[in-house]
């Protein structure tokens, strides 16, 4: 009767049967990428789409080479990249130093939760572009307001993740530690912090992703350098090849860093999802 229903396939020895979405998917992703690039070639080379709307991969590659050597929007690609990486990672670093401790503090302390919860929950859903003018009025147009804008966007998801991580520790683990003579400080350090690590890592991944999405907004603040600035500037001159090139460079960096965090996650939290 139900034979038409999809069945879980028997997996290899030592693998878990029926775990949803189990298995290696990298090769499928590579095929997806190749097909998309193939389509891109097809529609541009055949002339179906005008180069202004979608320049060909070859044109984008040329723009890339030009950007590397002569530069686009007054700076070389390397200078743009360095400016943007400094901003995103500066903000990310600041957020790690502040959002994670505050999130943990919110998890373990009623007072801290009452203190920070309304602030975070209020500004979190606001688009950065909405408070961008305020940031400029308050902090001016230097390097710091750019980093600060990205930092604000990263802060909320990271703090919320750290707080959720604290809440995810099982009360039995805490009770067991108390029943072995642990003090509250020890239990926060040796049980709660460790149990929160998986969620903290997830928060870091989400946070850095949000950082990249806020980059363009941040570089609207009187920047003269940066990948976001390069994209905005090229758009004004209808240089769509440079726009696409900039988007791809941002995407590649974001993706590479995400892979790195995932790798660290597997290395540092091998127990994730096991218990």
């Amino acid at each position: 009767m139900l034979s038409f229903m999809p069945q879980a396939k028997a997996t290899r020895a030592g693998k878990v049967y029926g775990a949803p979405g189990d298995g290696y998917s990298g090769h499928i992703s590579i095929i997806t990428a190749l097909v998309l690039i193939g389509l891109w070639f097809l529609v541009t080379e055949s002339g179906w789409v005008k180069p202004l709307f979608l320049p060909s991969p070859v044109a984008v590659y040329h723009k890339f080479m030009v950007a590397l050597t002569d530069g686009v929007a007054n700076s070389t690609l390397w200078e743009h990249t360095r400016a943007s990486l400094t901003r995103v990672f500066g903000a990310f670093f600041l957020a790690c130093l502040t959002a994670i401790p505050i999130g943990i503090w919110m998890g373990v302390s009623r007072v801290a939760r009452g203190l920070f919860d309304p602030i975070i929950e209020f500004y979190r859903p606001l688009p950065p572009l909405a408070y961008l003018p305020l940031v400029i009025i308050w902090l001016g147009i230097g390097e710091f307001p750019k980093i600060f804008l990205i930092y604000l966007a990263i802060f909320a998801p990271m703090a919320i993740a750290a707080r959720a991580g604290v809440k995810s520790v099982s009360i039995e683990q805490i009770h067991a530690a108390y029943a072995m003579g642990g003090t509250q400080g020890q239990i926060i350090r040796h049980v709660i912090l460790k149990a929160a690590l998986p969620e903290i890592f997830t928060g870091m991944r989400i946070g850095i992703g949000v950082g990249w999405t806020t980059l363009v907004a941040a570089e609207m603040i009187a920047a003269d350098r940066g990948l976001g600035f390069m994209v905005l500037n090229s758009a004004q001159f209808l240089d769509s090849a440079a726009v696409i090139m900039g988007i791809i460079v941002i995407g590649v960096f974001a993706f590479a860093f995400d892979l790195l965090v995932r790798y660290l996650e597997r290395l540092l939290i091998p127990w994730k999802g096991k218990i």
């Binding site: 099982s170 039995e172 683990q173 009770h175 067991a176 029943a179 690590l197 939290i269 127990w271 096991k274």
Partner: peptide, 14 residues
């Protein structure tokens, strides 16, 4: 002075 063993083990997976 009072050890506890829980229904679900409550050991630390790390």
């Amino acid at each position: 002075d009072r050890g506890v063993v829980f229904q679900k083990h409550a050991l630390l997976p790390w």
